[in-house]
Simulated scan of single mutants.
Amino acid sequence: MIDHVRDLEAVRDATERLLAAIAALDNASSAEPSRLPGWSRGHVLAHLSRNADALVNVLTGLPMYESAEAREADIARDADRDLDTHLKDVRTSAERLFATAAAQTDWSRTVHLRGGVTDTASRVPFRRLVEVELHHVDLGIGYELEDLPLGFVQQEILFLAERFRGHDTVPGVLIRQDDGRMITTGDRTGTPLTVTGRQADLLGWLAGRRDGAALTVVGGALPVLPGL
Protein backbone atom coordinates (compact mmCIF):
# COMPACT_ATOMS: atom_id res chain seq x y z
CA MET A 1 0.00 0.00 0.00
CA ILE A 2 1.24 3.47 -0.89
CA ASP A 3 2.11 5.61 2.14
CA HIS A 4 3.87 8.85 1.18
CA VAL A 5 5.28 9.42 4.69
CA ARG A 6 6.83 5.96 4.84
CA ASP A 7 8.00 6.19 1.25
CA LEU A 8 9.69 9.55 1.81
CA GLU A 9 11.63 8.05 4.72
CA ALA A 10 12.60 5.14 2.50
CA VAL A 11 13.79 7.59 -0.17
CA ARG A 12 15.97 9.34 2.41
CA ASP A 13 17.51 6.03 3.49
CA ALA A 14 18.06 4.89 -0.10
CA THR A 15 19.59 8.24 -1.03
CA GLU A 16 22.07 8.02 1.84
CA ARG A 17 23.08 4.52 0.74
CA LEU A 18 23.52 5.77 -2.79
CA LEU A 19 25.57 8.80 -1.73
CA ALA A 20 27.87 6.62 0.38
CA ALA A 21 28.40 4.30 -2.58
CA ILE A 22 29.09 7.17 -4.98
CA ALA A 23 31.60 8.70 -2.57
CA ALA A 24 33.68 5.51 -2.80
CA LEU A 25 34.12 5.91 -6.57
CA ASP A 26 36.66 8.01 -8.44
CA ASN A 27 36.52 10.04 -11.64
CA ALA A 28 37.68 7.13 -13.80
CA SER A 29 35.14 4.64 -12.44
CA SER A 30 32.29 7.14 -12.67
CA ALA A 31 33.02 7.43 -16.41
CA GLU A 32 32.88 3.65 -16.96
CA PRO A 33 29.85 1.93 -18.52
CA SER A 34 26.84 1.28 -16.32
CA ARG A 35 24.55 -1.71 -16.77
CA LEU A 36 22.19 0.40 -18.88
CA PRO A 37 22.98 0.17 -22.61
CA GLY A 38 24.72 3.30 -23.89
CA TRP A 39 24.94 4.96 -20.49
CA SER A 40 28.02 5.49 -18.37
CA ARG A 41 27.73 5.66 -14.60
CA GLY A 42 27.87 9.41 -15.08
CA HIS A 43 24.72 9.24 -17.22
CA VAL A 44 22.94 7.34 -14.44
CA LEU A 45 24.00 9.89 -11.83
CA ALA A 46 23.01 12.80 -14.05
CA HIS A 47 19.62 11.18 -14.64
CA LEU A 48 19.06 10.73 -10.90
CA SER A 49 19.76 14.41 -10.27
CA ARG A 50 17.57 15.64 -13.09
CA ASN A 51 14.80 13.22 -12.11
CA ALA A 52 14.71 14.77 -8.63
CA ASP A 53 14.30 18.19 -10.24
CA ALA A 54 11.61 16.81 -12.55
CA LEU A 55 9.63 15.50 -9.58
CA VAL A 56 9.92 18.91 -7.94
CA ASN A 57 8.24 20.21 -11.10
CA VAL A 58 5.52 17.56 -10.81
CA LEU A 59 4.76 18.45 -7.19
CA THR A 60 4.63 22.17 -7.98
CA GLY A 61 2.31 21.82 -10.98
CA LEU A 62 4.89 22.33 -13.73
CA PRO A 63 5.58 19.98 -16.66
CA MET A 64 7.84 17.15 -15.51
CA TYR A 65 10.28 17.87 -18.36
CA GLU A 66 10.28 20.65 -20.94
CA SER A 67 10.33 17.92 -23.60
CA ALA A 68 11.70 14.44 -24.18
CA GLU A 69 14.53 16.01 -26.16
CA ALA A 70 15.39 18.42 -23.35
CA ARG A 71 15.43 15.54 -20.86
CA GLU A 72 17.93 13.60 -22.96
CA ALA A 73 20.02 16.70 -23.61
CA ASP A 74 20.27 17.53 -19.91
CA ILE A 75 21.45 14.01 -19.07
CA ALA A 76 24.02 14.07 -21.89
CA ARG A 77 25.22 17.52 -20.80
CA ASP A 78 25.80 16.46 -17.20
CA ALA A 79 27.07 12.91 -17.72
CA ASP A 80 30.79 13.68 -18.06
CA ARG A 81 31.19 15.84 -14.98
CA ASP A 82 33.74 14.98 -12.31
CA LEU A 83 32.68 12.78 -9.41
CA ASP A 84 32.56 15.56 -6.81
CA THR A 85 30.16 17.54 -9.00
CA HIS A 86 27.95 14.48 -9.45
CA LEU A 87 27.97 13.80 -5.73
CA LYS A 88 27.00 17.37 -4.89
CA ASP A 89 24.27 17.42 -7.54
CA VAL A 90 22.69 14.15 -6.41
CA ARG A 91 22.68 15.41 -2.82
CA THR A 92 21.37 18.93 -3.45
CA SER A 93 18.73 17.89 -5.98
CA ALA A 94 17.47 15.30 -3.48
CA GLU A 95 17.27 17.96 -0.78
CA ARG A 96 15.25 20.20 -3.10
CA LEU A 97 12.81 17.35 -3.61
CA PHE A 98 12.54 16.65 0.13
CA ALA A 99 11.91 20.36 0.82
CA THR A 100 9.20 20.47 -1.85
CA ALA A 101 7.57 17.33 -0.45
CA ALA A 102 7.60 18.80 3.06
CA ALA A 103 5.58 21.77 1.78
CA GLN A 104 2.82 19.62 0.27
CA THR A 105 -0.61 19.80 1.87
CA ASP A 106 -2.76 17.80 -0.56
CA TRP A 107 -1.32 14.39 -1.34
CA SER A 108 -4.59 13.15 -2.86
CA ARG A 109 -4.51 15.47 -5.87
CA THR A 110 -3.75 14.33 -9.42
CA VAL A 111 -0.31 15.12 -10.81
CA HIS A 112 1.01 14.89 -14.36
CA LEU A 113 4.08 12.86 -15.26
CA ARG A 114 5.86 12.40 -18.59
CA GLY A 115 4.16 10.82 -21.58
CA GLY A 116 0.69 11.91 -20.51
CA VAL A 117 0.72 9.66 -17.41
CA THR A 118 -1.24 10.89 -14.41
CA ASP A 119 -1.10 9.69 -10.83
CA THR A 120 -1.85 10.87 -7.32
CA ALA A 121 0.73 13.03 -5.57
CA SER A 122 0.98 10.39 -2.84
CA ARG A 123 2.64 7.98 -5.29
CA VAL A 124 5.43 10.40 -6.26
CA PRO A 125 7.70 9.45 -3.31
CA PHE A 126 7.50 5.77 -4.24
CA ARG A 127 8.25 6.60 -7.86
CA ARG A 128 11.39 8.41 -6.68
CA LEU A 129 12.30 5.44 -4.48
CA VAL A 130 12.16 3.20 -7.55
CA GLU A 131 14.53 5.54 -9.39
CA VAL A 132 17.06 5.64 -6.55
CA GLU A 133 17.02 1.93 -5.72
CA LEU A 134 17.03 0.48 -9.24
CA HIS A 135 19.55 2.96 -10.63
CA HIS A 136 21.83 2.23 -7.67
CA VAL A 137 21.79 -1.37 -8.93
CA ASP A 138 22.31 -0.14 -12.50
CA LEU A 139 25.58 1.51 -11.49
CA GLY A 140 27.12 -1.96 -11.17
CA ILE A 141 29.17 -1.14 -8.09
CA GLY A 142 28.22 -4.00 -5.79
CA TYR A 143 24.59 -3.19 -4.92
CA GLU A 144 22.39 -5.93 -6.36
CA LEU A 145 18.69 -6.70 -6.56
CA GLU A 146 19.23 -9.13 -3.68
CA ASP A 147 20.42 -6.19 -1.54
CA LEU A 148 17.24 -4.17 -1.98
CA PRO A 149 15.04 -3.81 1.12
CA LEU A 150 12.42 -6.58 1.16
CA GLY A 151 9.53 -4.19 1.64
CA PHE A 152 10.60 -2.23 -1.43
CA VAL A 153 10.95 -5.39 -3.54
CA GLN A 154 7.44 -6.54 -2.59
CA GLN A 155 5.96 -3.11 -3.25
CA GLU A 156 7.70 -2.73 -6.62
CA ILE A 157 6.57 -6.17 -7.77
CA LEU A 158 2.99 -5.12 -6.99
CA PHE A 159 3.53 -1.76 -8.70
CA LEU A 160 4.88 -3.32 -11.91
CA ALA A 161 2.28 -6.07 -11.95
CA GLU A 162 -0.37 -3.36 -11.77
CA ARG A 163 1.34 -1.50 -14.62
CA PHE A 164 1.22 -4.53 -16.93
CA ARG A 165 -2.20 -5.79 -15.83
CA GLY A 166 -4.60 -5.69 -18.75
CA HIS A 167 -1.79 -4.81 -21.19
CA ASP A 168 -2.79 -6.17 -24.60
CA THR A 169 0.74 -7.30 -25.51
CA VAL A 170 1.36 -9.25 -22.29
CA PRO A 171 -0.33 -12.65 -21.87
CA GLY A 172 -1.98 -13.44 -18.58
CA VAL A 173 0.54 -14.36 -15.89
CA LEU A 174 0.14 -15.70 -12.38
CA ILE A 175 3.28 -14.76 -10.44
CA ARG A 176 4.17 -17.07 -7.55
CA GLN A 177 6.77 -15.53 -5.25
CA ASP A 178 9.15 -17.54 -3.11
CA ASP A 179 7.35 -16.44 0.05
CA GLY A 180 4.04 -17.86 -1.18
CA ARG A 181 2.57 -14.56 -2.37
CA MET A 182 0.67 -14.68 -5.65
CA ILE A 183 -0.31 -11.87 -7.99
CA THR A 184 -1.70 -11.66 -11.52
CA THR A 185 -0.63 -9.41 -14.36
CA GLY A 186 -1.02 -9.15 -18.13
CA ASP A 187 -4.15 -10.09 -20.10
CA ARG A 188 -7.14 -10.88 -17.92
CA THR A 189 -8.71 -13.39 -20.32
CA GLY A 190 -7.82 -17.03 -20.81
CA THR A 191 -5.67 -19.34 -18.73
CA PRO A 192 -2.61 -17.54 -17.35
CA LEU A 193 0.95 -18.75 -17.46
CA THR A 194 2.50 -19.43 -14.08
CA VAL A 195 5.85 -17.79 -13.34
CA THR A 196 7.63 -18.83 -10.15
CA GLY A 197 10.89 -17.62 -8.63
CA ARG A 198 12.77 -15.66 -6.03
CA GLN A 199 11.51 -12.15 -5.49
CA ALA A 200 14.79 -10.59 -6.69
CA ASP A 201 14.58 -12.55 -9.95
CA LEU A 202 10.90 -11.70 -10.41
CA LEU A 203 11.62 -8.02 -9.85
CA GLY A 204 14.57 -8.21 -12.25
CA TRP A 205 12.32 -9.64 -14.97
CA LEU A 206 9.45 -7.20 -14.37
CA ALA A 207 11.82 -4.20 -14.26
CA GLY A 208 13.84 -5.25 -17.31
CA ARG A 209 17.01 -5.86 -15.29
CA ARG A 210 17.18 -9.67 -15.78
CA ASP A 211 16.20 -11.99 -18.62
CA GLY A 212 14.13 -14.29 -16.44
CA ALA A 213 16.37 -17.33 -17.01
CA ALA A 214 16.23 -18.11 -13.27
CA LEU A 215 12.42 -18.24 -13.27
CA THR A 216 10.25 -21.32 -13.74
CA VAL A 217 7.48 -20.94 -16.33
CA VAL A 218 4.51 -23.30 -16.75
CA GLY A 219 2.02 -23.00 -19.61
CA GLY A 220 4.15 -21.28 -22.24
CA ALA A 221 7.21 -19.12 -22.80
CA LEU A 222 8.17 -16.31 -20.45
CA PRO A 223 6.63 -13.12 -21.90
CA VAL A 224 8.80 -10.31 -23.19
CA LEU A 225 7.57 -7.27 -21.30
CA PRO A 226 7.24 -3.72 -22.70
CA GLY A 227 9.96 -1.28 -21.73
CA LEU A 228 9.39 0.92 -18.68
Rank of each mutant, 00 (worst) to 15 (best):
H4W: 15
R6A: 14
V11E: 11
D13T: 14
A14D: 01
R17C: 04
A20N: 10
I22F: 05
A31W: 03
R41Q: 06
G42D: 09
L48D: 05
D53C: 09
D53R: 12
V56D: 02
N57Y: 02
V58A: 10
L62V: 02
E69R: 14
E69D: 15
R71V: 00
A76T: 13
A76P: 08
D78T: 03
D82T: 02
L87F: 09
L87G: 09
L87A: 13
K88L: 14
T92I: 02
L97N: 06
F98I: 09
F98E: 15
F98A: 12
A101Q: 11
T105C: 09
W107K: 13
S108V: 02
T110L: 14
G115V: 11
G115P: 04
V124T: 07
F126H: 03
F126E: 08
F126A: 00
R128K: 08
R128S: 06
V132C: 02
L134V: 05
H136C: 05
H136Y: 08
L139Y: 05
G140S: 06
I141M: 10
E146V: 14
L148R: 00
F152E: 02
Q154W: 07
Q154Y: 07
L160A: 09
A161T: 13
R163T: 11
L174V: 01
I175Q: 02
Q177I: 00
D178P: 00
D178T: 03
G186I: 00
D187W: 03
T191R: 10
T196N: 09
G197Q: 06
G204V: 03
G204N: 04
L206M: 10
R209Q: 02
R210D: 08
R210Q: 13
V218M: 12
A221I: 05
L228W: 13
